[in-house]
Design a protein around this nucleic acid. Structure first.
Length: 422
RNA sequence: GCCGCGAUAGUUUAGUGGUUAGAAUAGGGGACUGUGGAUCCCCUGACCCGGGUUCGAUUCCCGGUCGCGGCCCCA
């Protein structure tokens, strides 16, 4: 017996129906906001991935040499490929440029529930607007998608890496030197040593540590932050930006969130607002969405451009929905099963199925079952109608159409089945 | 990569150092030759893999594989 490789899954028809339902809903919301779909390759050059995330990422990648010795990697996420595509082909499009994607990603991680080695991401990138209304729209879009899917139990946390970076900058830690500190904040360890190393003074530390504590209600967090940053003009400016963004969220009707100025996300390219969405019922792997404002185009050789976006962990989203309700996409009974009464009726039944299929989902009974068994099969498979092809009706040029829900039956002329709309 | 738990029909499970490994459910058929969801009967169908201990291992031990709960990381 062969098994699917570790961390991968087969999706059975019932599950695929649910996944497609969620996927379709996400696509619709993305498109309602004006995003257009793109598809990038399943594998990329290894250098693209490491340029974005560093050499350490190789530990978590499926990477390999192809037969010509090219270093390649299965994509671990889609932001880098999308930005590569942007730099390659779309830099000179009218801005802002709104793109969305849906695709599988691969990571070499220890699998557990909500964490797979092949998993799906659905997300958007909004390229070319540096303004808070763009960032606000992206957050709103994520929340709106969850609302439209009917997910009740989720927590939106908004932070500002821009503010943290400004604090560091005012303490003399500039540019890339900030990254290890951001990463330490995210991990929650090794921060003090790094601050020693970079000679961050008493004042800078006090402000930074204070900021990391700020989590909760918007008004409280903002006013505390303003106090803390009263002598830090650059950080205050970032905070102003955040306040504007939050005011826009209010206009959109999004007020269900916590402000958490300690979110660092540990990723070097985030520059401004960041946000995360959790489905608390999922346990350890509860983050279903992550995003924010970042700066990546220049890493891939393009002109710097303000970008924001997010990615949903599609599988986790589906899991979260499943935890909340029995059925994600209730399947209505539909279509018609054509049942020949005996082998003699088969060729007529084939014609009947061909006619009905012109306008309807239609399946021919292929098991040579008796009528009783065929009706049972139709019932279990959720057919709304059964067309019974029996000798006595066929002699009159008719078949019986049975409605499986009401039990009502009527005779329909075979020739008229071409126009039949069930 | 680390810590812990687990693995028996398609699914949910019972049980055992020597058993025809039991059930429920699903699947096929029949009772019921052209009218479903019920009932009854029959059939199909399982001890994850490899080593060790043993007269004998599905059961005990070790390793692997896969899964699960955490850590790390992330989605």
């Amino acid at each position: 017996m062969f098994k699917a490789p570790r961390g991968t899954r087969d999706f059975l028809p019932d599950e695929m129906r649910e996944r497609r339902y969620v996927e379709t809903c996400l696509r619709r919301v993305f498109e309602d906001y004006g995003y257009r779909e793109i598809v990038t390759p399943t594998f990329e050059t290894l250098e693209l991935i490491t340029a974005k995330s560093g050499e350490e990422i190789k530990e978590h990648l499926y990477h390999f040499k192809d037969k010509s010795g090219r270093n390649l990697a299965l994509r671990p996420e889609l932001t880098a490929p999308v930005m590569r595509l942007y730099v390659n082909k779309l830099q000179f499009e009218a801005k802002p440029l709104k793109l969305y994607y849906f695709g599988s990603c691969f990571r070499y991680e220890r699998p557990q529930s909500g964490r797979y080695r092949e998993f799906w991401q659905a997300g958007v990138e909004l390229i070319g607007s540096p303004y808070p209304e763009a960032e606000a729209e992206v957050i709103v879009l994520a929340a709106d998608a969850l609302d439209r899917l009917g997910l009740k139990n989720y927590e939106l946390a908004i932070g500002s890496i821009g503010t943290l970076r400004a604090v560091l900058e005012e303490s003399g830690v500039k540019g890339e030197d900030q990254n290890p500190i951001m990463s330490a904040i995210d991990k929650g360890e090794g921060l003090q040593e790094l601050l020693d190393q970079k000679n961050v003074g008493e004042r800078g530390r006090r402000i930074l540590m204070g900021m990391l504590e700020l989590r909760g209600d918007k008004d409280n967090v903002i006013s505390s932050a303003e106090n803390l940053l009263s002598d830090s003009p650059k950080a205050l400016k970032e905070l102003e930006n955040l306040k504007t963004l939050l005011a826009f969220l209010e206009e959109y009707g999004v007020s269900r969130y916590v402000l958490d100025l300690g979110i660092a996300r540990g990723l070097d390219y985030y520059t401004g607002v960041v946000f995360e969405i959790y489905a608390p019922r999922l346990g350890a792997e509860k983050q279903i969405c992550g995003g924010g404002a970042y700066s990546l185009a220049e890493v891939f050789g393009g002109k710097p451009v303000a970008t924001c976006g997010f990615a949903f962990g599609f599988d986790r989203l589906v899991l979260a929905l499943k935890k909340e309700r029995k059925s994600i996409a209730p399947s209505a009974s539909r279509g018609c099963l054509v049942v020949p009464m005996g082998e003699g009726m088969l060729s007529t039944a084939i014609k009947v199925s061909r006619f009905i299929r012109k306008n309807n989902l239609c399946e021919l009974e292929l098991g040579r079952r008796r009528l009783r068994k065929a009706l049972g099969y139709a019932d279990r498979r959720g057919f709304r109608y059964v067309a019974i092809v029996g000798e006595s009706e066929v002699e009159r040029g008719c078949v019986v159409i049975r409605d499986m829900e009401s039990g009502e039956q009527r005779e329909v002329e075979i020739e008229k089945l071409k126009e039949l709309k069930l």
